[in-house]
Amino acid sequence: MSERAQEGRTAEGPTAGEGRTAGGGHGTGGGPGRVLVAVYGVFALAAGARAAVQIARQFDEAPLAYTLSAFAAAVYLLLAVALGRGMRRLALVACGIELAGVLIVGTLSLVDPEAFPKATVWSGFGSGYVFIPLVLPVLGLYWLSRRR
């Protein structure tokens, strides 16, 4: 499978040497990794903005849920940066936290809905975001394991 990653690099042609991101094709932010970084970026923006609005306007309504939303946004941002710059270990840890978060919060939100009166990105295993929050960490871990 690593051949496909190689193919992506050769397609870079003469510009391959420029590699703005650390390592370019070598790192975790090249090839398909670019797409992963883009998705994490969008989620960091969406979850972050949403959490900021919620915390600023109605924090008292659901402090736990809103704090978790902000935490999730921070993890997404961390992952976008870590993957984009090829910080493998940091990305691995963040992916683990993300997977644990979505599984724990997802389960809790179903078992004890009253603890989460307001939805977070991770509620119901990310059902409000077409389960992308559940798929993302798995994809991330898979991608990291391939780019060893």
Partner: peptide
């Protein structure tokens, strides 16, 4: 972010 990737994954970023 997409232009920086001169492979098939550039347009995927745009997607």
């Amino acid at each position: 972010w997409g232009v920086g990737e001169r492979s098939r994954w550039g347009p995927a970023v745009i997607a």
